[in-house]
Design a protein around this nucleic acid. Structure first.
Lengths: 150, 150
DNA sequence: TATGCACCCTGTAGCAACTACAGGGTCAAG
DNA sequence: CTTGACCCTGTAGTTGCTACAGGGTGCATA
């Protein structure tokens, strides 16, 4: 039995947009499939599996380049999976760093919002908190920048 | 006293790249400054303040469009700051959602990495976990996709 | 005076990872 | 035989910058 899928079928089967599939082909993540007489793309089971791998990796936040590396490693069954481990661990570190950054930002934002109980923009603490602090250090920055004239 | 800054001065004073400042001017976040006889941009204190506001907002993760809204609100001192509050709270929700997504992803990734203790790619659990699950549901997807022939 | 260097200008192209057309061709149902 | 859902290629848009290329300017130094 031979499985043949049109691009639309493959899109439905993997929850991917048709344009995205063509994009993966353009960037050589997904091999170009056979064509029908009418020049329609005709995918088989290997494309289905590969696109599934790509989508799952992308959902887990791997970049296109990382997916490319993982795919090429997964094709070499006899190699050590240490390299796979390195990619995955590095990615985990990236994710941890992004979470930490966002959490710091979240607390700052939360603190800013909590401070605001005023009615008008003129003394809105949110706007105030966003405005640069016009203190000694920024005066220093001004002087440092030079070209102040009277 | 009149403060005059070249684009490089302003860049140093705010920790922004020169190209980024020109970009903000192009997208009308920062008003076009006066020019010198040699057609050099000449910034004043208001630009310094505004760029500071922009940079701080961007650090807090507001999009360019959100910053535009915040800036235009901050220029209308007599208006209610309720709108500012709405923008900030919505942004906080976005940040919370992004943190939640990343944390879910982090746990999944961590679980995948922990499972792998093998030596070769052939039975690497990371690669396995990334590959699509070839179970009943994906068989259903295949049938659903149609055009399977023998 | 020349000359080097750091700075400034405009305009355009590139990055990631798609997404969205425009302007066609194909195919099956009614 | 027409309608509508699909398919094709190619190009441009998205976000927020960043990086040239190919010029001009301003100041210090040999």
């Amino acid at each position: 039995m031979v499985l043949q899928l049109s691009i639309g079928d493959l899109a439905k089967a993997t929850g991917t947009k048709v344009e995205t599939i063509r994009y993966y082909e353009r960037v050589a993540l997904l091999p170009a499939p056979a064509r029908t007489a009418a020049n329609y793309r005709s995918y088989d089971a290997s494309h289905l599996a590969r696109l599934g791998f790509i989508r799952r990796s992308r959902e887990l936040g791997f970049s296109i380049e990382e997916v490319r590396d993982l795919l090429s490693l997964s094709d070499q069954k006899d190699r050590s999976c240490a390299e796979v481990d390195v990619i995955a661990r590095k990615h985990l570190e990236d994710v941890d760093a992004r979470i930490a950054t966002l959490q710091k930002l979240r607390h700052e934002l939360d603190a800013i919002i909590r401070r605001c109980h005023s009615d008008t923009i003129a003394d809105c603490r949110i706007i105030e908190a966003l405005a640069p602090q016009m203190d000694a250090s920024s005066e220093a920055a001004k002087r440092n920048a030079g070209r102040a004239r009277h």
